[in-house]
Design a protein around this nucleic acid. Structure first.
Length: 243
DNA sequence: CCGGTTGTTCAGCG
DNA sequence: GCGCTGAACAACCG
């Protein structure tokens, strides 16, 4: 569920509710979600893995973390963290993190960091990466301030596509490779979106959870790398280490 | 049934 | 105050 492209799909599915008034609020969230009752949804937005339900004076921020889920016009076993009912349907969010944002969203979010956004700015990403030369590739691709919306699958697939070892340092990547890293992250994210919509995402994985390198036919290595200690799948032969 | 995970935050340490 | 580590949370799949 949680990577950026999946949140874009959610936003598309909620369009019938944009502009609708919230008739009823339910859920076991400890946040003051009742504030939404009787209010009109001005817009739905996304920033990376954040799903934003915008009202005139505040925003409900949903983050699905690892296990979150949602259902639209469909019941599911268990109590939702948040449920919103409209004149034309309802939506339930389960096992997610909910926060209320009081500030203007432009003051909270750097839209240019969102890999799925029209405002995505590759030059801004490059600038951030240049500032952190010691950062490892596997950490950079999970850094939400630089690649908001990128997750573990995107990380592994992008590094394989550009043939860069996850332990490579940002400061050691040749300029062309740095460009590839940035551009492929965005490009793969849109492939992810397309494949996820068609229910064929897994079929297109080249290294994530794989045992054999599709290129050299050698074994794929699985290690927990970087600050994040997340699963990295990579080919030690095809993916070059820049250090 | 157990082990593992498309994620993040926070407490506790040196 | 920092960087680092591990725990906690949670639901579902194989």
């Amino acid at each position: 569920m949680p990577e950026g492209p999946s949140i874009v799909i959610l936003k598309e599915l909620t369009t019938p509710f944009a502009g609708q008034k919230v008739i009823a609020v339910s859920g076991n969230s400890t946040m003051p979600i009742d504030r939404a009752k009787g209010k009109k949804i001005v817009d739905f937005k996304t920033w990376g893995k954040h799903f934003l339900i915008c009202f005139k004076d505040f925003t409900i921020r949903i983050h699905f973390l690892l296990f979150g889920s949602y259902r639209i016009n469909e019941e599911k076993e268990g109590t939702p963290r948040l449920g919103l009912r409209f004149g034309n349907g309802f939506i339930n969010f389960y096992a997610c993190s909910i926060k209320i944002i009081e500030q203007a969203l432009d003051d909270v979010y750097d839209w240019s960091a969102d890999i799925m956004s029209d405002d995505w700015n590759s030059k801004a990403a490059r600038k951030k990466l240049k500032k952190t030369p010691a950062m490892l590739a596997c950490d950079a691709l999970l850094n939400q301030d630089i690649f908001s919306g990128s997750g573990n699958i995107i990380k592994n697939e992008v590094l394989y596509r550009i043939q860069v070892h996850p332990l490579s340092k940002m400061g050691k990547l040749p300029p062309k490779k740095l460009t590839e890293l940035i551009n492929e992250t965005r490009a793969y994210s849109f492939d992810f979106l397309k494949w996820k919509k068609a229910y064929v995402l897994k079929k297109h994985w080249l290294v994530h959870t794989k045992k054999t390198c599709p290129r050299c036919k050698g074994p794929i290595q699985k290690e927990y790398l970087g600050i994040t200690r997340r699963r990295s799948f990579f080919c030690p032969v095809c993916q070059k280490l820049y250090e």
